[in-house]
Design a protein around this nucleic acid. Sequence first.
DNA 1: GGTTGACCCTGACGCCGCGTGAGGCGGCAG
DNA 2: CTGCCGCCTCACGCGGCGTCAGGGTCAACC
Lengths: 256, 256
Amino acid sequence: MDYTVGQVAALANVTVRTLHHYDEIGLLSPSGRTPAGYRTYGEADLDQLHRVLAYKELGFPLEEIAAIVSDPDTDTMGHLRKQRDLLLSKVERLRGMVVAVDRELESRRMGVTLTPEERFEVFGDWEPVPGYGEEAERRWGQTEQWRQAQDRMGSFDKEDFARMQTAQAEWVRELLAAVDEGSAADGERAMDLAERHRQLIGLLYDCSPAQHVGITRMYVSEPEQLNFLVSPDLQRPGLGAFICAAAQANAKRMGE
Amino acid sequence: MDYTVGQVAALANVTVRTLHHYDEIGLLSPSGRTPAGYRTYGEADLDQLHRVLAYKELGFPLEEIAAIVSDPDTDTMGHLRKQRDLLLSKVERLRGMVVAVDRELESRRMGVTLTPEERFEVFGDWEPVPGYGEEAERRWGQTEQWRQAQDRMGSFDKEDFARMQTAQAEWVRELLAAVDEGSAADGERAMDLAERHRQLIGLLYDCSPAQHVGITRMYVSEPEQLNFLVSPDLQRPGLGAFICAAAQANAKRMGE
DNA sequence: GGTTGACCCTGACGCCGCGTGAGGCGGCAG
DNA sequence: CTGCCGCCTCACGCGGCGTCAGGGTCAACC
């Protein structure tokens, strides 16, 4: 009971070209050919194809799949474990990206819907904790971070709040001092400040170093965002870029 | 205050080649050149690059980024929303893959550690609900699905259990009837059966049509798995392939 | 002034997993 | 015999760069 490429393609829900490709690279060669040169796939080939597709679905590159399905002695378990970690990190990255899109989306929405006066009104009303207010809720209410922050703030008491605000004010002071004294944005002092910033955020919601970079990048592309962090009259030109660069350097340091 | 490629690359944490590429495709051309032909990037260029990288981090293709950053009138919100959905579906896919890896990993582990006798003992002990027993816990206990299933079963009463087992038995009967009567694996009858199977699984844990395909594929590559679903003495040759094909057809139908 | 070494340039090919033709043969129904 | 569908083998293309190759430039040191 042999099959042609077209039949196999239909069965396995792949294209004929894909089967040709697998033949070319030696990943799955049909067990035979007709006198006219037509590929003929047998049941065993279908089985092999099934395994190939299974591994492909797991995200393995074709070369590794070839090694796995052809050689039963390969370290399949190791492969799988590595692949699992890879997948998890991908998921984390994607989640970070979703959050980034949410932020971008919400900030765009506000940028469009608010008149300059309203904008001033909003930004003029300096808030020590970003995301703590009605306006903020309209902006971030949809995101997971918001929900996390709500949860964690729910278990804060007044003293916790005061401590947090003090810590943030202290951080801002030291940040400005570092900038004014000409610290390098990728130096240890800046990295330490970035890490402290990340941990302040971490009091409200989970924030990996990579996500932290994404957030700080917003301080560059949308400098108004910075107003939530540092009172406008205290800001310096290039402050957003400094924070962002520091966060990048810190993320790199943390990653190693 | 101008920068060379190398400096910009270091600042933005990208390679020189990347900047060359962006110049080539017109995504980000430096604002000037030295007499010797060196690219010189100004502050505005850095700003632009920041925006480009932000969108890149969001997963946009470079061509779209070029359109977005150059033309302020593009439907950025629409782009972002679409991108968000795309990201979420990617996350779902990856999560499904992680689960698939977990299953593969656990089954491999078992395949290695169990003697044939033990294997028989395990598989001979037919269980109506996969994941309901001590052996199953050792196999699947690490996965999110298992935790979800535990949660949902916790809120089941005896009648719920009975209903579920009845529903599953009924489904198996109809499946075998369909196979014996020669129904097409990608026909409506088979697809309906696949969908019912997916929904039965859905009683225990979330299972998208795509994940469902992944699960059923296991019935082909590891036929022993089928024993958890259909009592061995009732099985037909090709039954796993039939279910898998039906699940594929159903997933395609659901996706449209 | 010459040399060194770090940086810059352009151009071109390579990678992965196929999509998408082009140009031509095989098989089967009418 | 004619059509049409399906099969074959090239062979180029994409996206987002990595990675040479072969050469020019710049600053510093001898």
